[in-house]
Amino acid sequence: MDPIVNSVAYCGGRRVASLRLDEISQVLKQPDKFVWIGLHEPSKELLRQVQNQFNLHDLAIEDAFSAHQRPKLEAYGDTLFIVLRTAQMNKTEHHIDFGETHFFLGANFIVTVRHGSSLAYTEVRSHCENTPHLLSKGPGFALYAVMDSIVDQYFPVIEALEQELIAVEELIFDHKPSRETTQQIYMLKRELLDVKRAITPLIDICNRLMRFDIGLIPEDTRPYFRDVYDHSLRINEMLDNTRELVTAALEANFSLTSISQSEVSKKFAGWAAIIGVPTMVAGIYGMNFKFMPELNLPWAYPLVLATTFGLCIILYIFFRRSGWL
């Protein structure tokens, strides 16, 4: 797969040309145009070429190549470097696949670099090109469009995690508590924590992009980032609510496990008490006393047996009614 997904010049919100890397520097000199390049897991050599064309900072290029960065926003002179984590649910293996998208934003260019599991932004670009009156706002609107797409990808992930929580709750209350159920809850809690770590910094990033001290974002584009900010807050609240429910489910599972163990202990105690009666009688008659007058009576043996079994039956009925058996 070609690491250069798209390299396009826009003027007035409309696509005017597809560019080679060596043509970009000439287009950047034209103030009425801006360049939007999309890269997917580029090599270090390709990133160096992009760096030379856009005059990007060495540290930002190093981060964009190595990936595995925390979500952040950094300013390098007149260029912004933004890192976001992407997420999508792997329905085959039933876990979340995380990726990263890095942005280089300048006055007349935007470069997106995708790493790992991440949907292509072809549809985002097409949507922007179909609304030239919005894309004419420049690279800032392109940044918003991609960020909005990334945030929207989190909603199906949260919904899938909520469905997984419902399935776990059914296991807890409809089946006997098990070690597998506890393991599922912990795995769900870990996935929620991973999503939390990805989405929480995005709130601060959007907040900074809405502020007036970042001149690369035009004033008429900042309200769009408020929309991304609101969506991020909503996802964060959904995560907090789901995490609380998972914690409650874990506590319920532990409580039901303790109750189940208590029920087993009561059954053992009940049967031990019942078995203790014949054990006691047998122990008395096994002490071999020389004088035991009842041994000479013809009805003594059946009376002792009847009494023993009678006491066992009485204890069984008592424990049964008490819920111990």
Rank of each mutant, 00 (worst) to 15 (best):
E23N: 03
T182K: 15
F289K: 11
M210A: 00
T247L: 06
P31E: 01
T242I: 03
Y186Q: 14
Q26E: 06
V168S: 05
L28S: 02
E123T: 12
I166H: 12
R211V: 00
V195R: 09
N90R: 06
E180V: 13
N52I: 15
I166Y: 12
P132M: 05
G99I: 05
V246I: 02
V246H: 00
M280P: 13
R320Y: 14
V168H: 03
Q53W: 09
A306C: 09
I259V: 03
Q53I: 06
V50A: 11
L209E: 00
L209Y: 05
S255N: 10
L161Q: 03
T112C: 01
K196E: 11
L134C: 02
N130Y: 04
T92I: 12
L59H: 07
L165H: 11
L202W: 12
R125N: 04
R85L: 12
I110M: 07
T92L: 13
R243E: 08
P71W: 04
G38D: 02
I314H: 09
L188E: 10
Q69T: 07
G270L: 08
H40F: 14
Y10F: 13
A249G: 02
D227L: 04
M89W: 15
M287R: 12
M238S: 09
E219D: 14
F98L: 09
S117M: 03
L193F: 15
G286T: 09
L19I: 05
D213R: 07
T79R: 11
L297F: 14
V195I: 15
S25N: 04
E45Q: 05
L295A: 15
L303S: 14
S149H: 15
H102A: 12
L245D: 00
P298A: 13
E123W: 12
V195N: 11
L311N: 03
G286I: 08
L250I: 02
Y285H: 13
V5S: 05
T122W: 08
A300V: 02
S126P: 00
L134G: 01
N55W: 13
A198H: 11
G116W: 11
N236P: 10
R321D: 09
M187Y: 15
V50Y: 09
D32P: 03
D174V: 10
L73V: 09
P139E: 05
V304R: 04
L161H: 06
G138L: 02
A300E: 06
A67I: 07
L21H: 04
A252W: 03
M210Q: 10
I158R: 10
P31D: 03
I61R: 00
T279R: 01
P139D: 00
R226W: 13
D204F: 11
S7H: 01
E180R: 14
S117W: 06
C206Y: 10
Y229A: 02
M238Q: 08
E74Y: 09
A67S: 14
D2W: 09
A252Q: 01
M287N: 13
E191S: 14
I284G: 13
Q49P: 10
I24K: 00
A273R: 02
G99P: 08
E294I: 14
R114A: 08
S43A: 05
G215V: 15
M187C: 14
L84G: 10
P218K: 08
D240G: 11
E74Q: 12
Q69E: 12
